[in-house]
């Protein structure tokens, strides 16, 4: 663990909490893309399957459980509890256009052709583009609420901080994972591009 990874994880945690609190306090999920949240739930589910096979640390286990639980809680709020406030007319991104290419790419480019490894790789590829339905929705409606911008900023910072973490780990442990690094850079560029435009 280093400072970049810890602050990255905390930014990720903060983003999720901002989103949940926003929906809960305003009793509304207006402006939030349910499609992006579906993609994040798929990302966490396919990445954290190793929760039952591999133990890393209490921190690792607790964070994984939190990310899984919060992503399903967010889906529950959007699609069931506050369904009436969900802006589905503006949430029209076709997620199969992200899921299928990410899956095919995971089958072709991975570290090992095993069930867990391919799904882990798929989750990395899918995460890098999972925010697109949300960015598409913001660009369609013209403006994001400030709280939605805070959410996007915290979520974007997380992968940017992970890039610093990967540089640090390369320097100190000579450890690197090209799949995570390339996908992480793509992900960060998408967020930067969005913040540059808006």
């Amino acid at each position: 663990m280093n400072i970049f990874r810890l602050t990255g994880d905390l930014a990720h945690l903060l983003a999720i909490i901002i989103l949940l609190l926003k929906i809960w306090k305003t009793r509304s999920c207006a402006g939030i893309s349910g499609k992006s949240q579906i993609l994040f739930a798929i990302v966490y589910t396919t990445r954290y399957l190793d929760l039952v096979t591999t133990y890393v640390s209490a921190y690792n286990t607790l964070m994984k459980i939190f990310f899984l639980a919060s992503s399903y809680a967010t889906l529950y709020l959007i699609y069931i509890k506050f369904k009436a406030t969900y802006d589905h007319n503006h949430d029209t991104f076709r997620i199969e256009f992200l899921i299928l290419p990410a899956f095919i790419l995971a089958l072709l480019i991975n570290h090992a052709f095993t069930f867990l490894e391919v799904l882990w790789t798929f989750s990395i590829y899918l995460e890098s583009v999972a925010i697109l339905p949300q960015l598409f929705m913001v660009s369609k409606t013209g403006e994001a609420e400030s709280i939605t911008s805070h959410y996007l900023f915290a979520l974007g910072s997380y992968r940017a901080l992970y890039i610093l973490n990967w540089i640090y780990r390369y320097a100190t442990e000579v450890h690197y994972d090209l799949i995570a690094i390339v996908a992480g850079i793509v992900q960060t560029v998408l967020y930067c591009d969005f913040f540059y435009l808006y």
Binding site: R5, D50, T54, N60, M63, K64, F67, N165, Y176, D177
Partner: peptide, 10 residues
Amino acid sequence: ERKLEKKDEL
């Protein structure tokens, strides 16, 4: 490239 045996990142 030395891939992690255990994936310790989130």
